[in-house]
Design a protein around this nucleic acid. Structure first.
Lengths: 211, 211, 211, 211
DNA sequence: GGCTAATCGAGACGGTACGTCAAGTCTTGCT
DNA sequence: AGCAAGACTTGACGTACCGTCTCGATTAGCC
């Protein structure tokens, strides 16, 4: 999927924007994130590496945070959910994938930073939701649906309850992995992932019983 | 509990540092966090509000992040775990407390920011662990011990396994609440807390079965 | 004559430097010198009065001293040497002009200060020589040449000797006036100027006799 | 001759001031002037080298400039005027001595600086006059008196005129040497000194004729 | 093929905050 | 009282980025 800079009201005339510049900028942004981290990333530095003028950045993104969100969002689309035959196996697979993604320096440093900024910046929060969060809920939906098809989970009764549980699982899985990796700063290894998936699979029955 | 600025090798002579200044600075820091958030907090502003010179800040804290950690850490000590008679009730109580803490503007904006910075700053990471993370694990330990006394959970067999489970629960609870509140930006209300605690209590048996 | 900020290798691209800013800065510098003197002149204050950012100053001048030299140098170009008919009259005229210049607060406070700094700062010394000292030697040369034309002084024999005498006269006149005005802090009035010019005119014969 | 710090109203009680400290401070001041020059001399540095607290400095001198004047003034007392048999020889001797003094790094950097400051600081100007300028006029007086005794100069007629001429000679000699050494930054060598003394001796007759 | 209009690189611009440094004062306990 | 030590307030320093602006020079599409 393509990250899309600030949309603009389709000018019919004048020189069109360079598509190469777009990608060069996002690539340069990821490079700088890797080397310097979010807080030392500067627009001038990104522009320089991309071989582009600062003006060209600001014509596309309103500020550093929006640029970083776009640069990082595309990485999350690599996550996928192959059918491994059981709910627990599916969970363990995606958790390990997600942990590997969080280990990448460009994600590690950028994700928490933009979320922190988003607590005070509503447009940024929306951009994060649209570009990253909502887009990845598909993993939970697919996993749950597949488990129902296998008979591991009961079929839906109350759609509201199902949505609530999907959201819960999403927050628990994403939150736990992030917390383990970035706050506790402990490895997300097989042993830990085993325990987490056991907790989830074991607990889902109790949650379903709530109705 | 007292937040402690940069320790120093006990000078016997000279004018001692002002203890009032210490507290005035931390208080001013929390004020600015509330009003402006982390990214717009400036050392000069904090100094001004505390009625103190900028150099006095830098004599005690090496940078903005260490100052903010100390200013915020003390808030986490308000969390407590009264005995409500059941594991699930205890969990729900502390989760709601934690969610309320995360709703406070000074915590919301600061916590993620310093964690983000800590991905590139080892001393900062250590300070966060020591001042905030490790200190709150007591809640998990107490809750588990109490549940064992009540017979809700089996007595310890393998101490390694017990530690691993404690850590898991801590990451899951803290991570889920943070993700819900700050990333998903949805309310941590009674319904959600019910579901989360049901998931945990229901899953703990399965985790224990892993040995 | 124009005072010229730091020369630079003629960039063909980019926004050109504002010529208005140049003059506004030098003017503001002279203002601040008058009001506050050299030691209380700050770059921030100058920038503020010139309606310019501090960075704009530093882009043009490396430090306060170079700026002050440029701001003051232009004032010395007002000195001139009208032909008053005799060597002594010419000397008295230019000495009074120079004394009047030294009485101006912007010169009085700045000149000695930058010379003092120049004892430790070779580039500054060169700038002073080029912008101020060498430029004013013309007064001595013109005066001497004119006196020779009038027959008050013998024609040149040894050019080396002539140069040495020109230099001597320059140091004596400039040094004596500065010392009288700034160190002795006594007025450079007609009586004193009479005496000085009598000393010079009377002594020049003896110096010429040295060969 | 001793440089004398701020006089004070003879305290009858309490610990008396350390006399050793006085000299250590002035000595340290000269050291720092040699190594760092006036503009980089700091009170803290001087105090440190003198093995003294900053408070002790400020108890004796009101500020940096007064301290520097006192530290440097004593050096000027080394100048003396041995009888060399002729006015011109006497002049050349003292000029060379003075030039040697101005070559010393502590004098070179400090003298112009404090004079510059004194244009805005009346008490400082008075201190300079009292400690340095007036004290050295003795050289002119002695030289003139001796030349009169030898018959090189006519005996006094009008005492006012004599004073004016003494002052003129003082400003011319001191000013010319300072200007040559610090502004023109050319050596004060025998050839130059010859020329200067010839100018003075040759010109004095013309000045005397003014009455 | 010239016109129009938005793009491009470059770099100067007004700002804001940084973290440091020195000046001169104040506070403590010791002599 | 004087003194050493060192914390204190104040205020300027010179630097680094921010996001905007002005240049002259390219590109396109449209007439």
């Amino acid at each position: 999927m393509c990250s899309r800079p600030t949309p603009r009201p389709a000018p019919r005339t004048g020189r069109p924007r360079s598509a190469e510049a777009d990608e060069a900028i996002l690539e340069a942004t990821r490079e700088v994130l890797v080397e310097l981290g979010w807080s030392k990333l500067t627009m001038g530095d990104v522009a320089g590496r991309a071989g582009v003028a600062k003006t060209t950045l600001y014509r596309r993104w309103a500020n550093k945070n929006e640029l970083v969100v776009d640069a990082v969002a595309v990485l999350f689309d690599e996550l996928e959910l192959p059918d491994l035959g059981s709910l627990q196996a599916d969970i363990e697979h995606v958790v390990l994938q997600f942990a590997a993604l969080l280990e990448r320096p460009e994600t590690k440093t950028a994700l928490m930073a933009v979320v922190a900024e988003s607590t005070r910046d509503v447009p940024l929060r929306e951009r994060i939701r649209a570009s990253i969060v909502e887009r990845q809920k598909r993993l939970v939906l697919d996993g749950r649906r597949r488990a129902q098809e296998r008979g591991e989970l009961p079929a839906d009764r109350d759609p509201v309850s199902v949505d609530a549980t999907d959201d819960l699982i999403f927050d628990v899985v994403a939150g736990a992995v992030v917390h383990r990796a970035l706050v506790s700063a402990e490895p997300v290894d097989t042993a830990w992932v085993n325990r987490l998936s056991a907790l989830l699979v074991g607990g889902l029955g109790a949650v379903a019983a709530l109705g």
